[in-house]
Design a protein around this nucleic acid. Structure first.
Length: 425
RNA sequence: GGAGAGAUGCCGGAGCGGUCGAACGGGCACGCUUGGAAAGCGUGUGUAGGGGCAACUCUACCCAGGGUUCGAAUCCCUGUCUCUCCGCCA
């Protein structure tokens, strides 16, 4: 969440944020309501102070055996007035808050302005497009021929967008996320967690998925009000919700494997084949909590950690710096990693690395106490490290052989019992 | 699922409806003491919001939300969570 003090101190900045992020929000209305709120608070608190003072007096007077019925009568009215003003205060607060929650994070200064993906800026590439002396196939053809994903029965079980891995396909999926976790925990210094995948509403608000994206989330009925997580970012970031950390404990590096659930509302018909856009997928996520001064250094380190995954797998990728119109609601700066998938002939988004600055921390009340005893919001960052289906696509299509078999990258072989190749039976 | 007990500050733990932001103990920080340390002594030690240039001041917060009252940590209702016992269960 943005700092609501800005309604009073710098509404122009908020308008600029909305313009850069390409959202339309009535800031003037919020400023007006916030002003009313402030005036009301002054009036209300004066009344409360009077009530406290006179009530105290009634106490001493009664103790002395004197009569205080006139004061009691007067305070009865004050009490009623306090109740009335307080109700109005809550109303105003809710209205202001609703607007504040809908305002996106301010983009970092070096983020290019733009409307959408066309204005994203490529800032790095690694490797090059693999060359084939045959026509590379799309992953769905490879998978069907090798019998490692049962697309049809997946649909029978759950509907389109749900993947049923089989045999060595299932094994490869498991091998990949184990490899990612091992890499981050043993080489990059992350602590592994295994979180619940159903979380409550407060957690979803904390990381910014709610209230804005409720349509995209799966939730339980029967009054539980629980949500299937769209990413482990939600439970992992919320681990420290409503906490005050010690500066000496920062930075914290966390990683977790989890399945992720996305309704993809409004995306019907887009990228529907194979593994390109699914409702449930596996992902290893990385989350950092750090002091504000270090967050952009931490972002670069995070980016290097992600790069390491793709480089170790030998996948050609490019890195995009997202423009203001394409960056997510909660992010101040974001890099997307896109891997080349030669079968579908596309760059696929396989990871994104974001600095949220204090936007999530303010929503989730994650603070730290610095050496000089000041309490302040931490900065949070996260990255997919990495998301499976599209990485799987890039991997299958990159490592396919003329005979339709798939060569397994060397780092994955230990996780596959030493197997070098997935071949047709 | 049934029955009971509980939730107070960094921790432990008091708290008759009034002067309680909260006794007491511990921890921590600072100061004194010391050659240095320990002990000892003293002082301090929450979060959020409003007003003020500031010193400062006011308000709210004793799990959460309602209620009673001139006045609630304290009384009443609801919810959440924790613990104990019983039942059920992978």
């Amino acid at each position: 969440m943005i700092d609501t003090r800005l309604f009073k101190d710098d509404p122009e900045k908020l308008k600029n944020t909305c313009r850069l992020k390409r959202v339309n929000i009535d800031i003037d209305r919020a400023v007006e309501l916030d002003g009313q709120r402030r005036e009301l608070i002054v009036e209300l608190e004066n009344l409360q102070a009077e009530r406290n003072r006179v009530s105290k007096e009634i106490g001493t007077r009664k103790a002395a055996g004197e009569d205080a019925s006139a004061e009691m009568e007067a305070m009865k009215e004050v009490g009623a007035k306090v109740k009335e003003l307080d109700a109005r205060r809550i109303e105003l607060e809710e209205e202001v808050n609703a607007i504040a929650l809908a305002i996106p994070n301010h983009p970092a200064a070096d983020v290019p302005e733009g409307d959408g993906e066309n204005e994203n800026v490529e800032i790095a590439t690694w490797g090059e497009k693999p060359k084939f002396d045959f026509a590379p196939k799309a992953h769905w053809e490879l998978c069907e021929a090798l019998d490692i994903i049962d697309f049809q029965r997946g649909v029978k079980l759950s509907g389109s967008g749900f993947i049923l891995y089989k045999g060595l396909g299932a094994r490869l999926e498991r091998a990949l996320y184990n490899f990612f976790l091992d890499l981050h925990t043993t080489e990059h210094g992350y602590t592994e967690w295994f979180p619940p995948v159903l979380v409550n509403r407060a957690s979803m608000i904390g990381t910014g998925q709610l209230p804005k994206m409720e349509e995209d989330m799966y939730c339980t009925d029967k009054g539980d009000d629980l949500f299937l997580i769209p990413t482990a970012e939600v439970p992992i970031t919320n681990i420290h919700r409503d906490e005050i950390l010690n500066e000496s404990d920062l930075p914290l590096y966390y990683t977790a494997y989890s399945p992720c659930f996305r309704r993809e509302a409004g995306a019907a018909g887009k990228d529907t084949r194979g593994l390109l856009r699914v409702h449930e997928f596996n992902k290893v996520e990385m989350v950092k909590f750090c002091a504000p001064e270090t967050s952009y250094d931490e972002l670069e380190k995070l980016r290097a950690n992600v790069a390491k995954v793709f480089e170790t797998l030998g996948l050609h990728y490019r890195i995009l710096k997202l423009c203001t119109g394409d960056i997510s609601f909660a992010a101040a700066k974001c890099y997307d990693f896109e891997c080349w998938a030669p079968g579908v002939e596309k760059f696929l988004e396989c990871s994104s690395c974001s600095n949220f600055e204090d936007f999530q921390a303010r929503r989730a009340k994650i603070r730290y106490k610095s050496a000089d005893k000041k309490t302040n919001f931490v900065h949070t960052l996260n990255a997919s490290g990495v998301a499976l289906p599209r990485t799987m696509v890039a991997l299958l299509e990159t490592y396919q052989q003329a005979d339709g078999s798939i060569l397994i990258p060397e780092v994955i072989r230990p996780y596959m019992g030493g197997l070098e190749k997935i071949e047709k039976k």
